[in-house]
Nucleic acid binder design. Sequence first.
RNA 1: CGGGAUGUAGCGCAGCCCGGUAGCGCACCACGUUCGGGACGUGGGGGUCGCAGGUUCGAAUCCUGUCAUCCCGACCA
Length: 491
Amino acid sequence: MAKEITGRDKDYAQWYNDLVLKGGLADYSAVRGCMVIKPHGFALWENMRDQLDRMFKETGHVNAYFPLFIPKSFLSREAAHVEGFAKECAVVTHYRLKNDPDGNGVIVDPDAKLEEELIVRPTSETIIWHSYKDWIKSYRDLPLLINQWANVVRWEMRTRLFLRTTEFLWQEGHTAHATAAEAIAETRQMLDIYAEFSERWMALPVIRGVKTESERFAGAVETYCIEALMQDGKALQAGTSHFLGQNFAKAFDVKFSDKENKLEYVWATSWGVSTRLVGALVMAHSDDEGLILPPKIAPVQVVIIPVYKGTDQKEAIDNRVHALVSQLKKAGVRVKYDDNDNNRPGWKFAEYELKGVPVRIAIGARDLENNVAEVARRDTRQKETLPLDNLDTAIISLLDNIQQAMFEKARAYRDSHITRVDDWAAFERVLDEKGGFVAAHWDGTPATEEAIKQKTKATIRCIPLDNPQEIGTCVFSGKPSRERVLFARAY
RNA sequence: CGGGAUGUAGCGCAGCCCGGUAGCGCACCACGUUCGGGACGUGGGGGUCGCAGGUUCGAAUCCUGUCAUCCCGACCA
């Protein structure tokens, strides 16, 4: 009974859902638009989180925690910010239930109405800046470099596992600086950290760029982003880093005394990535056999499966495998010996492929006689027979090899799906038939951007950093343009 | 919020048209044989048929209402 995961080309949504569900990452929950992250999915997220956390700390950031609830009045302090989030907020209006007098379970107690409603945070800028006002008095208090790992809630109309859930886990960094230049440098530094994490740890190539005005974060002066490409040709925003200027400082009255004892508003940034990255990982690397996880963040990097008849053979294999396991563990490899007797080897092979374990080692009685093992890599599904002597070092280099190969494969796909286009007919044709990013000239106006979006559902994903300047004419309006921007249909 | 579909055992489904007191596969439990790509035999446990009304001697099945979920749109740093 093979659990087939097919339809990568035809029914991509179904293919993706199957991967998440059958790969054991998450499940639908009882709450609309929310999901249960299962142990395998959470272990993956933890590995990602831990590495990001290390990178944040290496660059001088510290963690803190702010409240889940935000008084409604806080949210309205920054006009653009409330405009951007008001439509998707969950609101707490009461603080008590009581038994229904008619005997139908419990009802909301109308006497327990809150004087001021509380918003379940869709993001924490407002409540954090309310604290920063008290924390920042002098240039000596700056820069303030704080990150928070938290859950947030955005009541989106339509949700997808990991990619857009009502509640999701993320980190949000919120920093305050004495100068604009320093804040911009921080914004760029965090973008680079996200890009490095994505490429080196998730094996997911990304394009660094800046958002256009219409795609900018609510309340930001400039939004930087990393954009990734999924296997169906749609783009996915994988992380953002915002230069907030003095908008929030002014809204929350956060001033500091500089060296000349002059009062100045601070300059701010915020940046975040979420469990959406898990979805990106699934969509960028998987195949019809299941998930393919990059070794550096896979919860289990190597699984060892014994093949035996009878307890004598099992014992002989156990002895040899235990030595291998301790060698690998000593080298820091996350290894699992699955000697569970309930399932047969073929079942286990298929199961670990579904779950995306990068390397599988099978050892049978026959192998033991020949002092070898069968080693299979998940990304290419190639198998080879390797000697048991020094197998640990071979495995360690194989893991590196897989990490590299996954990145190269994804990058080759991404690079072959950036298409330069100079006329409107080609623009529409490439979007429909090939997908991916379309590099085209744009006249720089929000009106043209919106018209293109209405016509094709494609949006400007970003203006790449270090974008070459090139004289041309807008693919839509024919007006003059100085550079190409990247369009794509996106999640 | 519009369009489509689905709610029956932990999961996947059949039964509904034509009403007669619930079934199949997987999973689970026991025993035995198995074990190099999702094993097999025998026996067993598990279900207020989403919920609420109605019709009927009798409703998973027919009628009305309602709720939920998924897909496609609209929406979305």
